[in-house]
């Protein structure tokens, strides 16, 4: 039997279908919890964040618009935001950004995910791996921990302008590398 698409499950959720919600949770729980754990680094807190993310997805399923992007991106953005809120008021980020970057770019087992998804992920990993640490560090701090350029500048003892410049150069390089294969 062909599994329902993500969009179909969201439509089901939008009208309050519990079965659709269960299938949706089952399909995405490892990715949602994985992202939450990556950001907050505490399993119990990560489960709270993951649960909150699914509740928000359930509540806002009717507002999802497929033209805006994939369901996975939408759901992981909700998760990322919830996780950032959970760590926002700590003085220190849960994990050194260089260590987190190393985890993000580490080689993965190709048999662990579908071939097309593995190829995409491997391409993103490769692009991030090529960034100098002075660029990947602020990009990771901003993306995964929600730090502003000013936050990062204070944390790393750098001028705000330097941080902004490094982030822009880093994202520009990533955009060029990732965009090069999209066409």
């Amino acid at each position: 039997m062909t599994p329902l698409t993500d969009e179909s499950l969201l439509v089901g959720m939008a009208v309050g279908d519990q079965d659709a919600a269960a299938a949706f949770v089952r399909r995405y729980q490892a990715r949602v919890y994985g992202l939450a754990l990556t950001v907050v680094a505490i399993p119990a807190l990560a489960e709270e964040v993951a649960q909150e993310s699914f509740v928000k997805a359930w509540q806002h399923a009717a507002a999802y618009d497929a033209r805006r992007g994939r369901v996975a991106t939408w759901l992981l953005t909700i998760t990322r935001n919830a996780a950032i809120d959970a760590v926002r008021y700590r003085r220190e980020v849960p994990l050194d950004p260089d260590v987190l970057t190393a985890k993000l770019v580490a080689d993965q087992d190709p048999s662990a995910e579908p071939a097309d998804r593995f190829a995409t992920m491997d391409h993103i990993r490769g692009a991030l791996r090529q960034l100098p640490l002075e660029q990947s560090r602020p990009v990771v701090l901003m993306t995964f921990y929600g730090l502003t350029a000013k936050d990062i500048a204070e944390r790393d003892g750098l001028p705000v302008g330097t941080v902004k410049s490094r982030v822009r150069r880093g994202l520009g390089a990533l955009r060029d590398r990732l965009g090069a294969s999209d066409g």
Partner: peptide, 13 residues
């Protein structure tokens, strides 16, 4: 940024 977020490793809760 959306692509970078996808890199978070999966974990079963």
């Amino acid at each position: 940024l959306d692509d970078l977020v996808l890199l978070a490793p999966e974990h079963e809760p």
